[in-house]
Each structure stands twice: as C-alpha cells, then as structure tokens.
C-alpha cells in the first residue's frame, strides 16, 4: 500500500505528538501535567486515525474521544485524592510504594 503525501505528513505529525506526549509523562513532575500528557498521547492516536482513515473513521474517532474523556475524568479524580491526602501534586512525592 502506498501512502499518499498529505497522509504521510499527518502521520508524521501524529508520531511526533506521540513523542511529545510520552516526553510529557516522563518529564513533568506535576500530576496534572502528567494527565495532560496522557491526553496528548490519546490525541496523537486520534490524529493517526484521521491521517490514515480520512472521513471513514468519524465514528471511531468520536468513540475514542468519549473513552479518553472518561479515562481523563478517572485520572483526575485520583489526582484529587492524591491532593487530599498529601496536599501536593508533586509526582516525586508519591513514591512510598517501591522495591
């Protein structure tokens, strides 16, 4: 299968976005920013869908966005609980369980 040019550009963009998302999760100390990283990853996937599927993937994309919203809500609710317990959103503070 030959990828057409704009498709390739979009796919490249999606792959870059994936890298950005991963980097965000790896480097950010603030838990909110980590969750934002997760969202960037999800958006990278959505972009890849659109890049490769065009109009035919509308349905998929909407479902994915809905699911990602639920995941984000759950993740944020856990962040809220972290805040309630420790009064901090610092990722390096939540290292009690290790080894």
């Amino acid at each position: 299968m030959v990828l057409e040019d704009p498709t390739q550009m979009n796919l490249l963009g999606a792959a870059l976005l994936l890298g950005v998302g991963l980097f965000c999760i790896m480097s950010q100390n603030n838990l909110i920013k980590v969750v934002i990283g997760l969202e960037i990853l999800a958006k990278a996937a959505v972009l890849a869908f659109i890049a490769l599927g065009g109009a035919s993937v509308q349905g998929y994309v909407i479902i994915i966005i809905a699911i990602e919203a639920i995941v984000a809500a759950v993740a944020l609710s856990i962040v809220v609980n972290v805040w309630r317990h420790s009064g901090s959103l610092d990722a390096s503070d939540i290292t009690e369980l290790k080894g």
């Binding site: 991963l22 999760i25 790896m26 980590v34 990722a91 390096s92 290292t95 290790k98």
Partner: peptide, 15 residues
C-alpha cells in the same frame, strides 16, 4: 532498585 515507584520513571519503560 529499578522499582523506584516513581510515576515518571515508570514510563521510561515504554521507551
């Protein structure tokens, strides 16, 4: 020692 329990370091596993 590799099981640091740090969220950021955990994700290095992907890379």
């Amino acid at each position: 020692r590799l099981q640091t329990g740090d969220v950021n370091i955990n994700t290095v596993g992907f890379v």
